[in-house]
Amino acid sequence: MKPLKIEPFGDAALLVTLGEVISLEVHQKVVSFVRAIESSSIVGVGELISSYNTVTVYYDFLQIPYSELKSQLEELDIEKISIPEKNIVQIPVCYDEEFALDMKEVISKTNLSKEEIVKLHTSKEYLVYMLGFMPGFFYLGGMDTRLRCERKEKPRLKVASGSVGIAGGQTGVYPLDSPGGWQIIGKSPVKFFDKSNSSNYFKIQQGDGIRFYEISKDEFINTFQ
C-alpha cells in the first residue's frame, strides 16, 4: 500500500489524505482509517472529522508530539479493518406540491414528469459519503444523472428542516431550518437531528446507505407527526 499523506493542520490537528478523488474506493479507505484510529490505543488523539477523502485528527501535543503521532498513524493497518455491513436507513418523503416548492422548476429543467422524478429519486440506494456543512447534514452519492438540476438562482432565506432537495448532481435533506439554494422536491417527517434524544442525536452516520420512499400528504400528517 502507498504511504499515507499526513501533514500538520494547524498546531493542534493533522490532516490525513487517503485519495485525491471522490470515489467508493477512497470512501472505504476513509471509513477503515477512522475505525482503525478509534480501535487503537494511541494516546492524545481527540475528535475526528472525516470527509470524502480526508480525516482531520485533533490531538493534544502536550501528550504526543506530531512526529510520534504521524508515525503511529502510518503503522495502522487499514487493510486489516473489516467494514461491517452497511446500515440501510429508509427515509419517507412526501413529494406533494405543498412541500415540493420547486417541483415545477425541476420538471422544466429535467424534462421529466413529476412521476418520473419521484420514481428516479426513490429507485436508488444512496451512500452517505460524509457529514458536514451543518449539524446532521449528509452528503449523498449515487443520484440518477437524469435528475441533475442546477441550484436556484436566488437562495431562500429559510428552508424548513426535513426538506429534500437537488443541487447539481447531488441530492440531500436539510436537517435544520436554514437558508439554502437547493431545488426542493419534497419533505421528510424524520428528525435527522434531535437534541433531546440523548441515545441517538443524529439519525445518519458516514457510511450508511439511504433509500427514499414515497408517502402521501395524509401519511405525512397522520402517521409521522
Binding site: 494547524g10 493542534a12 470524502y52
Partner: peptide, 10 residues
Amino acid sequence: MISSGIVQGT
C-alpha cells in the same frame, strides 16, 4: 476543492 475538515483558526 473537495470538501474537507476545518479546525478553529483555519
